[in-house]
Amino acid sequence: MIVMLWHNIDYVASVVLFSIGLYVVIAKENLIKKFLGLNIMETAVFAFIIALGMVEDGRPPIMTGDAQGPFASPLPQTLVLTGIVVAVSTTALALTLIIRIFRRFGTIEANELREME
């Protein structure tokens, strides 16, 4: 299994990044920090999907006249492209909510917000 993991080092790196992001989301109280963690989780998933679509010595899937294969798979790249745009939309919305929370309560620490109830 260790040999297998060594060959799949991209996947392992994605899992590590995902775990770091998850840790930030769970353990940190600051809302902006939580969303930095969520962004790390998102990018880790994107990196995983891109790594899935990659092929040994693969070229970008662009079919100019004299391009020679093997080509990387275009489908995962398309999905990730969609995902990046959705990720920035959710981040913008979340940060707007955080700005409003700060204006209303004067803090963006989740534990202090819980105590205020």
Binding site: M4, I9, L22, Y23, M54
Partner: peptide, 25 residues
């Protein structure tokens, strides 16, 4: 938090080890 993260990371690593090799055409 660390325990929870490990709890989710270990199945992920095991699952990732079973995937087709990176770059396998």
């Amino acid at each position: 938090a660390i325990a929870l993260v490990l709890l989710s990371a270990i199945p992920l690593v095991v699952a990732v080890a079973g995937l087709p090799a990176h770059g396998d055409p």
